[in-house]
Simulated assay, not measured.
Amino acid sequence: MFYKEYPPHPALARHVACVWAARAPGGGPAHRVLPDNCVDMLWQDDGQAGFAVGMMSSAILVASARPLWTLAVRFKPGMAGLFLALPMQEITDQRADIDLLWERGEAERLTDALWTGDAPVRARLALIERALLRRLRDGGDDGASTGLAQRAIAALEGSGGEVRVAVLAAQLGVSRQHLAAQFRQHVGLSPKLFARICRFRKATAAIKAAPAPDWAQLALACGYFDQSHLIHDFQEFCGSAPERFHFSNPTVA
């Protein structure tokens, strides 16, 4: 399977983690995509409308019966709502067609342009970036509305998911309830679940880098209270124990 990420247009860098392209050969085994605390928008050469994939709370399996090209944008946490114009919890663990989120004519024109002709992949991705820049310009970058969520995201990611939500709310000068409501609206998950996925992703990276990990030490290094909590999160987020994950080859989006 071909997969490549590209840095976004500089004017989108505050909002977009990357744009990416992939080509699945078709007919092969399904690959596993793990929760990554991001929202993606994808367009595929299957004649269907593009779609957004909301924040994920567990792994999904992706398979294609025939060769399939995908062009996509991956938003930074808390930024997709500026382009989709809906509360992000509405699409958590779901997909939503772009022509239902954007004006239908705009969505159809972009889809047609992406799959017409033989332009190189990076040029096609630039069409997506231009569409996002138009929406950012027309809708405005309402940093004030997302400011609290962004400060919380920075603290959670900076601590590797180890800061407690009650402590974080106190540091931000808001109640836990207000923080949770803002976080769900702009991010799509609760702060606690976001933090757990931060720890999980830290653990998956550590496992890939360690040929023979000491599981108890790895759990502590990644912010888990003990090994059993590490095992619980692996079962919930990827459907396997850490030891099985260590010997598999999952795709982490």
Rank of each mutant, 00 (worst) to 15 (best):
D138E: 15
K202M: 00
L71P: 07
F200G: 00
A216H: 11
G239D: 07
G173K: 15
E243I: 08
A96F: 10
G173W: 14
R151N: 05
Y224P: 03
V163H: 04
R244F: 07
A113L: 13
F225H: 04
T146F: 04
G160M: 03
K202D: 00
S64I: 11
S57N: 15
Y224D: 03
R124H: 15
A210K: 04
R176D: 13
A209F: 02
W115A: 12
G147S: 06
A152T: 05
I128K: 11
G147I: 01
D36H: 13
P213N: 11
E129K: 07
A154G: 04
V39K: 10
W215N: 03
K208H: 09
A63V: 11
R244D: 08
A166D: 14
A123F: 15
A85Q: 08
E103I: 06
S64R: 12
S228D: 15
P25M: 09
Q227M: 08
L100R: 11
R122S: 14
D46E: 06
F200P: 01
G239C: 06
P35E: 11
R196G: 02
D214A: 06
S145W: 10
R199A: 03
V39R: 08
Y3F: 09
L172S: 10
E157S: 01
Y3W: 07
H229M: 10
S145G: 10
D226G: 03
T92E: 08
L168F: 13
A205W: 00
P120A: 13
P10C: 15
V16F: 09
F194T: 03
A216I: 10
A180V: 13
A241E: 14
E162G: 06
A144Y: 06
D40A: 08
A131K: 09
L133S: 01
L42F: 04
S159P: 09
F51Q: 08
S175A: 10
L156W: 05
A123L: 15
R122V: 15
M88F: 04
L132N: 03
S248F: 07
G173E: 11
G81P: 02
S175I: 10
Y224K: 07
G117H: 11
L132K: 03
V53N: 05
G117C: 11
Q89S: 05
E103P: 06
A154D: 05
I153A: 02
C38R: 13
K208C: 05
A22W: 05
K192H: 10
E108T: 09
G117A: 11
K192Q: 14
Q44R: 13
V187C: 10
M79N: 03
A203E: 00
G239R: 06
V121I: 14
R135V: 04
A126H: 13
